[in-house]
Design a protein around this nucleic acid. Structure first.
Length: 637
RNA sequence: GGGCCCGUAGCUCAGCCAGGAUAGAGUGUCAGCCUCCGGAGCUGAAGGGCGCGGGUUCAAAUCCCGCCGGGCCCGCCA
């Protein structure tokens, strides 16, 4: 059975689409919320298409009629077609729908695609920190939205284990001669945190030695202060050993490049050291991600991409490609020619690739003159791999806005190498950085607030608040609820804002109970649950249709019924923030209604059951909406 | 030097891509609401003309041009 509300809108959109010869997606885009609720439930700006809409209106009525869905009044007003549902008829259909097991779910897409979402992909050398949080939450929410929309979603984490940073951390472990995972157990510190500390000490020490060598005393002093601080965090008398070991190296750079070269070749002992170190960090990541209920389908090792020959394949392809060139002796792709020949002449391509105006991109170097590969080259190989492995229609990379240029280069390189479909369907979902008020983050110096710590902080505040409100609450239940509140707070804050705006995460504000926030939604959900629990099973057959003949109830109904379309649009536009603001506004309406129109104390039985149905619709909508945002649902607070 | 992003009520933001209905929320401020289905709630008031200046249009917060302020990016780093 179709959702009668959604079906009605579908028929309207279809008719408009056929009559105006505009495609349906476009119609849905224009089918909008009126400025004022009184005007209509939906509006369509007809004036941009037609001056005399009478025939169209007639056709719409006809089509609705033949589908037995005479549920709306249509009125042309100042350039708009205003659609207003006849509430009693609509309600009657909805009662029937729900009675027969109908639910309010995201409207499925007509085209079901396979979509890869790559997100988080943090460097495996320190714990996940606030800098990664936005990426993680956005990536997971997008995955949930797209999946609810009916697409097959494949979530991937790219393990960047071939960078210099990993090698520096590995060098640290080599010097103290310890196995990362065993050491972590021995000193009882989370593995990612331990590796983060070793990395920070190693990296800072090396920089300090370098600064001294260059006689840059100011810098050396600054770094010495960082080292003093790091020493104070020493988990188990490791600092001196590490520091003196690094200081006694005659040529640290050579040491680093040896490890790097050997690892790129897959040789031991470098291979087993780096792999085990990286795995121990990944264990820490998974532990943190579990708290947020975030999972991945695949964990891809950058080193595997290299060892399996995929990077060599790219280089070979390039060598036989017309855009292959040499740039200062290194193997490169002639990006300017790719732009001139493949992008600029093609409207479709240039619309999707969206080049910066008048910006000269240099050739893209694929391989250093010493024969080693670069991150971007490996990412080209990985991009092709992501498409091939899952036969994906689209690949979405959630990566910071600072990576725009390299991401653009990858698309252009793919285009030049003949991977047109891949180039046009590789989407860089970019976002601006997250700041913590008054704190700066430097991974290399061990300066960051970890995600674990943030969750713990919010949780502690929530426990305090819960005990304030309810002094009799048990520790266990306070802890359990607080943890869910913490996750809800964090996930809400990370996706509620347009991703292009820099986000300052202020813990004290996020937990501030008077602001619209995750806990507000969770609280509203609990309210709805409580009413339903008190009310008991709903007798659908007893419901009076005229329950809905009431302003607040009517707008609540319409609001809740819009969910399938709102979630669908949020998925298509990749804008979770639209779903967030919808859920907040649904909650606002529900709370407003709640204060003004009691369900439990309603005397008229038929109306009481009707009101209970409304509560159930709101509860189900919040249920689904909160799930999509990864905000835990509570049954008490 | 060039490119990209952001700039809307005291504060945090929707609306801009696809120009049209009196520019919307929340928060904060002020004034009210606990014989109530849990007040993390509700009711009401004050508060901006959309960074600045031009242009296009019957119509501009939305499109174009030029400025200003803030952030980011322009490596044989990742």
């Amino acid at each position: 059975m179709d959702n009668p509300f959604v079906k009605t809108i579908d028929i309207i959109a279809e008719t408009i689409s056929n009559e105006l010869k505009v495609n349906q997606e476009e119609v849905f885009r224009f089918l909008m919320e009126p400025v004022k609720e009184e005007y209509a439930d939906f509006s369509f700006p007809i004036k941009r298409f037609l001056n005399k809409p009478e025939d169209l209106i007639f056709k719409i009525y006809n089509n609705l009629d033949s589908n037995n869905l005479k549920l709306v009044d249509i009125e042309p007003v100042s350039g708009f077609l205003n659609f207003k549902f006849k509430e009693e008829r609509l309600f009657e259909k909805i009662i029937d729908y729900v009675k027969n097991g109908g639910v309010i779910k995201t409207k499925k897409s007509d085209k079901q695609l396979t979509i890869v979402v790559e997100h988080t992909s943090a460097n495996p050398i320190h714990p996940l920190h606030m800098g990664h949080t936005r990426n993680t939450c956005i990536g997971d929410t997008l995955s949930r939205l797209l999946s609810a929309r009916g697409h097959k979603v494949n979530r991937r984490f790219y393990i960047d284990d071939m960078g210099r940073q990993v090698v520096i951390a590995a060098l640290g472990f080599k010097i103290i001669n310890e196995n990362p995972l065993e050491l972590s157990k021995k000193v009882n510190i989370k593995p990612d945190k331990l590796v983060g500390w070793i990395y920070a000490v190693s990296s800072t020490t090396l920089d300090a030695l370098e600064a001294k060598k260059k006689n840059n005393m100011e810098e050396a002093e600054k770094l010495a202060a960082v080292l003093t601080k790091l020493k104070s965090q020493d988990p188990s008398n490791l600092f001196d050993k590490l520091f003196s070991g690094l200081s006694s190296l005659s040529d640290p750079e050579k040491e680093i490049s040896n490890i790097m070269l050997n690892y790129e070749k897959g040789l031991d002992p470098e291979k087993s050291l780096i792999r085990s170190m990286t795995k121990s960090v990944l264990n820490g990541f998974m532990d943190t991600l579990n708290k947020l209920d975030i999972n991945f389908d695949n964990w891809d090792w950058e080193s595997d991409i290299v060892w399996n020959g995929l990077v060599d394949n790219v280089i070979n392809l390039a060598k036989n490609n017309k855009y292959f060139t040499k740039f200062k002796d290194a193997d490169a792709l002639d990006i300017p020619s790719i732009i001139n020949e493949l992008v600029k002449n093609d409207q479709q391509i240039s619309k999707i690739i969206n080049l910066p105006k008048g910006f000269e991109l240099p050739p893209l170097i694929l391989r250093r003159s010493d024969g080693s590969t670069l991150y971007t080259t490996r990412d080209i190989a990985y991009s092709i791999y992501k498409f091939n492995e899952t036969k994906a229609d689209k690949v979405i990379n959630v990566i910071g806005a600072d990576q725009r240029l390299p991401q653009l280069q990858i698309r252009l390189a793919l285009l030049g190498l003949g991977f047109k479909k891949e180039a046009l369907n590789l989407i860089h979902y970019d976002y601006e950085i997250v700041r913590l008020p008054g704190k700066s983050m430097h991974g290399r110096r061990g300066e960051y607030v970890t995600l674990d710590e943030v969750i713990e902080d919010i949780k502690n505040k929530a426990v305090e608040e819960l005990k304030n409100r309810n002094p009799n609450i048990s520790n266990d239940s306070a802890n359990e609820i607080a943890e869910k509140i913490a996750v809800g707070t964090l996930r809400f804050s990370m996706v509620q804002l347009n991703s292009m705006k820099p986000l300052t995460f202020d813990i004290s504000k996020a937990i501030n109970l008077k602001e619209n926030s995750g806990p507000y939604l969770q609280y509203t959900y609990v309210r709805a649950l409580n009413i339903l629990e008190k009310h008991g099973k709903i007798n659908y057959d007893a419901i009076k249709n005229d329950t809905i003949n009431h302003k607040l109830r009517r707008s609540m109904l319409i609001k809740a019924l819009k969910f399938p379309l709102i979630a669908a649009k949020a998925a298509d536009d990749l804008s979770p923030e639209d779903l967030v603001s919808y859920l907040v506004s649904l909650s606002d309406q529900f709370n407003q209604w709640y204060e003004n129109d009691s369900v439990i104390r309603e005397n008229d039985y038929g109306i009481k059951e009707g009101k209970a149905l409304l509560v159930e619709l709101v509860k189900n909508t919040l249920d689904e909406g909160l799930y999509l945002l990864g905000i835990p649902r509570l049954n008490k607070i």
